[in-house]
Design a protein around this nucleic acid. Structure first.
Lengths: 195, 195
DNA sequence: TTGCCCGGTGGCACTGGGTGCCACTAGCGT
DNA sequence: ACGCTAGTGGCACCCAGTGCCACCGGGCAA
């Protein structure tokens, strides 16, 4: 058993880079932190950094692909009785149900993604996967093609609801689940407060 | 009056760069075209290219800021009697009402923006301005703050509707106005086809 | 033990986007 | 003729990201 240094498996190194990235980006703007500094802070070389994350932005996102897969599984397991929008809302709530200890990290991650222009831009590419998964779910439920108007519109507007919920959650003090439900309720009701 | 070369005002050079960019990006992937090639094709130097457009992506967007300003003016001029969603839909239709001769160009532009990952990412930053303008309009109409949930949700989901309409328009043969109305109708009705 | 394989690593050179700086030129009013 | 200004080109520079190669460690078979 080692004492001084860990076995340094792939996961451990990845996690160390993520932690270092979140910390540095909390101090300075995304663009003001170079990949060299990121690598130094994680105790690795610049070249190794780019072996673990394809871009600087990816270091903020963690294993987002796993979330997309989980969302897909949740949607696939929904009951036919449940309204489509409700099933999507429930899946979004479920996939964003973090243990309380992880919330500060999630807050910082989302703050960066929603406010730093470079990360905001990058997010579009990551969210495209989410949109595809949701559109496929809607297409399955409605019997039309995944690239037709209704599935695409439901996918994009539910993601808009989720994004808005994250904005509200960041600005306020409530729970993310409440904000998600509030946004989805507005959407499903055709915005009842607008007369 | 010159015969050989035009006066080369700022606008003329800008337009020439835009045309060259659209042409080159139609032939090859966005990433496969270097700024040097873009500059060469426009008959200017690389350095001058970046004086007219801050990034390669901006060359595709033309004068998008003018569109945002126009959208803002249209929204400011809407009647209080009109439902909020309808006013936004009308403004989107109006601002995207191009003369028929410009439609091929618009198609190519939107195809690039919606399919090329780098441009898709960049679009998020440009659309943030649109979202701000729409959210302010909704806030004015509803009397709440522009960064609260409903204005933000309406802004983001109407933009989702517009984006979906563009996707449908690109895929099909109909008119953009029809696709916009179809998407906004779904949204305003709370997705009636989903039971 | 020796030799081999293999995953993770670091170094290095290179491409390409984007910027700061400086020098040049054409037009234009005085 | 003078200076002013906007637009330009060239150059050096920073930084993200990539391809290539060399190295190192641990497991594994002979």
């Amino acid at each position: 058993m080692r004492v001084v240094s860990e076995p340094a498996t792939r996961e451990v190194t990845r996690a160390r880079i993520e932690a270092a990235a979140l910390e540095l980006f909390a101090e300075r703007d995304f663009d003001a932190v170079t990949a060299d500094e990121l690598a130094d802070a994680a105790g690795i070389s610049r070249r190794t950094f780019f072996r673990h994350f394809a871009t600087k932005a990816d270091a903020v996102w963690g294993d987002f692909h796993a979330h997309v897969v989980r969302l897909q599984e949740l949607l696939a397991a929904t009951s036919e009785d449940q309204p489509v929008l409700a099933s999507i809302c429930a899946a979004y709530v479920e996939v964003n149900d973090y243990p309380g200890a992880d919330l500060p990290l999630l807050r910082e991650r989302m703050r960066l993604i929603l406010t730093e222009p470079a990360l905001q831009a990058h997010s579009q590419v990551r969210y495209a996967d989410v949109d595809r998964v949701v559109a496929e779910h809607v297409a399955r439920r409605t019997g039309c093609r995944p690239d037709s108007l209704v599935p695409r519109l439901v996918a994009l507007s539910t993601r808009a609801a989720a994004t808005t919920a994250f904005e509200a959650w960041l600005a306020g003090e409530g729970s993310l689940a409440d904000d998600l439900h509030a946004a989805f309720d507005q959407l499903a009701g055709g915005f009842p407060t607008l007369r």
